[in-house]
Design a protein around this nucleic acid. Structure first.
Lengths: 171, 171
DNA sequence: TAACGCGCGATATGATGTAACAAGCGAATG
DNA sequence: CATTCGCTTGTTACATCATATCGCGCGTTA
C-alpha cells in the first residue's frame, strides 16, 4: 500500500514535471507519440489537484494561447487512457493523471474525498488477493483492477467534525 | 460471500415478484411510498437481466399503456437509490434493481460481465476489512461501500476460449 | 512524387442528467 | 366541508458528457 493524499504544502510544480517526464519516457519506450496536444491535456490533468471533466480541460486550455476543441481533448484523453497515463473516474465522469505505474497483480484504489474533491491513488496487494478469491467463488475473472471509493479524507473529516460541534453549540 | 450470476434457467418471474414484494415491505416499514410510477420503474429494472440506462427504462415504459417522461424516470430512480432498492452502476451510467439487503459492515461488489452484460451482486466481509485497512492507512474513511469490477463471467469465459481456439485453427 | 497512415480541426448529433415551475392529489387541520 | 400543506408528477427547457463523420495537413515510405 502507498501514496495517500498529497500533503498540503508539497512542491506541486515538481510533481507535475516528474509526471510529464515519466510520460515522455513511457511513450518513447513504447514508440507512441506524446504530441504537443496530448502533452498539454496531460499537463492540465497533472496540474489539477482533483479530477477534471473533459470540458473543464477545454476551459483551462481556452485560457492559453491555443484553445483546443472538445473533440480533440477527448481524442487526447482516449490516447492517455490507452497508454495508462491517465485514469477515468467513472463515478465523476472525470479524468486524472496517473501518478505511478501499476504492478500487474495489485489493485488500484481511488479514494475520492467528497468534500475537497482530492483523490488518493493507493494500491493494495491484500485487497487484490481477496478480490480474486471473492470473484473466483462465482467463476468470474476480474479484468479491470481499478476501484473507486468515495468518502472523506483525514483533513476534511476533522473539518466536518468541527463544523458539527459548533453547530451543536449554537443550537 | 454469496449470490453469483443467476443460473440461465432460473424462474425469473418468481425472482421479480419476490423483489417487488420485498420492496413493498421495505417501503411500508420505512413509511415511504412506493407509488405506482416508482413501482413500474423498479419492476422494469427487476425484469431486466442487465443494468438499464434511464432512457432504456423510458423506452420500455413507452411500450406500455402509460408512457413515462424521462424526468419522472429519473425522479423514481432517485427515490429507489435513496431507499437502497436499486443501485447505480457508475461505469455504465445504468441502474439495477437491488436483489438483497446489505449488511452494514460488508462491502457490495458488482461483477460486471463485459460480454453478456449480466451483473452479479456479491458481498464479502474480508474485502470490507481489507478496504478498511487500506484506507485507514491514509486516514480516509470510506462512505460508499460499493465497488464495481468488470471482467468475464464463467459462461462467457468459456465461450471466448472456444472462439479463440477455433480462430487459431482456422488460421 | 504518389500513396498512406495518423493526428487534428470543424461541425453536427446523440446520450445522459438537471433546473424550474405548475398542476394534481391526498392527509392534516381548522 | 374548505383550506392548507407537503409530496408526487407533468412539462419545458437547458446543461453536461460523449461520439460520428468528413476532410485537411504532414511526415513516412515506397
Amino acid at each position: 500500500m502507498n501514496a495517500g493524499f498529497p500533503s498540503l504544502d508539497h512542491d506541486h510544480k515538481r510533481c507535475v514535471a516528474d509526471a510529464m517526464a515519466r510520460a515522455d519516457e513511457a511513450c518513447d519506450a513504447r514508440g507512441v507519440r506524446l504530441t504537443p496536444l496530448r502533452r498539454r491535456v496531460l499537463q492540465a490533468l497533472a496540474e489539477s489537484h482533483s479530477p477534471l471533466g473533459a470540458y473543464e480541460i477545454v476551459e483551462r486550455l481556452k485560457k492559453t494561447r491555443e484553445p483546443v476543441p472538445a473533440m480533440s481533448v477527448y481524442r487526447a484523453l482516449d490516447f492517455l487512457l490507452a497508454e495508462g497515463l491517465a485514469h477515468r473516474i467513472e463515478s465523476q465522469n472525470a479524468f486524472l493523471a496517473c501518478i505511478h505505474g501499476h504492478e500487474t497483480d495489485e489493485i488500484v484504489l481511488f479514494l475520492l474525498c467528497e468534500r475537497c474533491k482530492r483523490v488518493a491513488e493507493v494500491t493494495s496487494g491484500a485487497l487484490g488477493r481477496d478480490l480474486s478469491q471473492a470473484t473466483r467463488g462465482v467463476g468470474f475473472s476480474a479484468k479491470a483492477r481499478v476501484l473507486e471509493v468515495s468518502g472523506l479524507c483525514n483533513a476534511c473529516k476533522k473539518t466536518e467534525a468541527r463544523v458539527k460541534q459548533s453547530q451543536g453549540i449554537s443550537r
